[in-house]
Amino acid sequence: MSTATLSGVCPECETDLTVPPVVQGETLACPECMLTLRVEDVQGGQLTLQMVEVQLRDWGQ
């Protein structure tokens, strides 16, 4: 019994990623650089990934 997977490349560190099925708009973390990535498109088992800018909170300290 095999599980379908999708492939993509981290746009920051160029690590090859293999992930379980995801849909457009989902986010995931690159295991190499820990960058948060958003799935922009899924076609033919290939993911198009985009970096997500993380907004740090300013707690006024």
Rank of each mutant, 00 (worst) to 15 (best):
P31S: 03
Q61S: 15
V22L: 15
Q50R: 15
M1G: 05
E32G: 02
C10V: 11
Q55F: 02
C30M: 05
G45D: 03
E40L: 10
R57K: 12
E12N: 10
V23Y: 06
L49V: 03
C13E: 04
S2Q: 05
Q43D: 14
L37S: 04
C10L: 03
T36P: 04
V23A: 14
G60M: 11
D58K: 10
E26G: 00
T27P: 01
E12C: 07
A4E: 07
T18P: 02
C13T: 07
T5E: 09
L47N: 01
V42C: 00
C30H: 10
M51D: 02
V23I: 10
G8N: 09
Q55E: 13
E26N: 14
L56H: 07
G60Y: 07
E14Y: 11
G60N: 14
L47P: 00
E32L: 09
C30Q: 07
M34Q: 12
P31C: 04
W59T: 07
C10K: 10
E53G: 08
Q61A: 11
A4Y: 00
Q46G: 05
S2I: 01
A4L: 12
D41A: 15
Q43I: 12
C33F: 09
L35E: 13
V23E: 14
E53M: 10
E26C: 03
T3I: 00
E14P: 02
V42T: 06
L56F: 09
